[in-house]
Amino acid sequence: MMQSSSVIDLLGRPLGVLRLSLTARCNLACPYCCPDSVEPQGLLSTLDQLRLIHSACALGVHTLRLTGGEPLLTDRLWPLLEALSVGRATPGHPLSRLKDLAITTNGSLLDDAKAQQLRALGVDRITISLDAVDAESIARMAGLRRGAEAGLELFKRVLAGIDAARAAGYEPDQGALKLNAVIQRGRNDDQLIPLARLARQQRMELRLIEYMDVGNRNGWCLDQVMPATEMIQILHSHWPLQPIGRQPGGTSSQWLYQDGEGSIATIASITEPFCSDCNRLRITADGQAFTCLFASEGIDLRRWLRMDVSDSELAEVMTQLWTGRSDRFSEDRGLMQVGNHHAEMAYLGG
């Protein structure tokens, strides 16, 4: 089953990153992501997850990102990490090809014990999501019903989570701890400077994400998208920036603060699509494989996870899935009909 190089899709894009969702549930209800929190039926077992990761690594995956929902909300995280840790440390094992293991969390459940455990089990990077600094704005973006009071409580928990991650050895200066923020015009665009100021104080890279048309119930419209170029212009007027660019296969374009106080990045899926070198495969908590974040439906892999199906058969199915891939929705967005059905963000794992 081991292969010497990545499988290539119809547009010449190699498989490199696997985003595996552990749960569709979340303790927040951000309207752009998770209008409700419903777990799908038929969740993958730890063995199922490992078989999929093994096959993906044999086909060229070098980076695994664990997502949700909120991955820290499920106890299924820990046995998976334990098994990954053993495999990555075993020479010749498919998992030894896994060079980067990351997790995305809203940070509210990240305490000292969990951060230390993540570190001990080999998680290399943590990305924490926070869409505002002002308490009322936090509550609005997180879907919290108690307003500013709940927003302030969440903000304090996220800051405590950042402190816990740093204490566990996740160094922002080494790219091991980053901050994500979705910016939606008319809802939290006034938080752009406060978020950047917070990230600078915390020495964390802030990744500003354009509001995306993922899902069907978030009320997305183009007028609510603040283009990445506009965000950078606003920030540049406060703190001059120097462009670095985007790494091949990466999702973010980067800038350095000219005063030496770290960096900032933008993820511009709407206005500056990066489909041409997208190398990401997404698998949901119930085993649906999506080759595009904006896809309407996935391919159910569970039938190939039965015990009577060999690992080589599973790898062949995943190979066919990737080599037959030609999607580039963001580049084609202007040619698509309005109202296309998309899977929900919390289900896909972002």
Rank of each mutant, 00 (worst) to 15 (best):
G219N: 08
I183E: 03
L10E: 15
E153Y: 01
M204W: 05
E331G: 11
L121S: 04
G16I: 00
K156N: 14
F290D: 02
L47I: 12
V338C: 08
W78D: 03
L10K: 15
I103Q: 05
A268M: 13
K114A: 15
T74I: 00
R119F: 13
L321S: 05
T284M: 05
A168I: 03
M212C: 03
N216E: 08
Q242Y: 10
E297H: 15
L72G: 01
M204V: 01
T323Y: 11
D9E: 06
L241W: 07
E210H: 09
L208G: 00
H236L: 03
L130H: 04
D190A: 14
A289C: 02
V182P: 00
M336K: 14
I138T: 02
Y347M: 10
L84V: 09
V182N: 00
Y32R: 04
R97Q: 13
R125F: 11
V225C: 11
L159R: 15
A168E: 03
R200W: 04
A139I: 09
D163T: 13
A56G: 05
R203L: 12
L43A: 09
L235S: 04
L305G: 00
R246F: 07
R157Q: 10
A285I: 01
A56S: 15
I103K: 02
D308W: 11
V133W: 15
G169R: 12
S263C: 07
M1N: 07
L101Q: 06
D173M: 14
Q320V: 05
L198C: 02
Q254W: 15
S276N: 12
M2D: 08
L109R: 14
Q202T: 03
D9Q: 09
R119L: 12
N218F: 00
G298M: 02
G87L: 10
G262C: 05
W322C: 02
I270N: 10
R140V: 02
L20S: 03
Q41A: 15
F155A: 14
Q3L: 12
R140P: 02
A199T: 05
L348R: 13
K178L: 06
I53Y: 09
P79I: 04
S45W: 10
G42F: 11
A113H: 12
N188D: 04
A343T: 11
T74S: 10
C26I: 01
Y257K: 10
P227L: 07
D223E: 15
E344H: 14
R306I: 00
L195I: 01
G249N: 14
Y257E: 10
Q224V: 00
G12D: 02
L15K: 08
C221H: 15
N340D: 15
G298P: 04
L98T: 02
I234F: 00
T271N: 12
Y32W: 07
G107F: 11
T266Y: 13
L195C: 00
Q258M: 13
L95G: 03
E82C: 00
E344G: 11
R197S: 14
T284C: 04
H342A: 13
I8E: 03
R65F: 02
A176M: 12
T251Y: 07
T271I: 10
L206S: 01
V123M: 08
H236P: 06
V309K: 08
E230F: 10
L110C: 09
G334T: 11
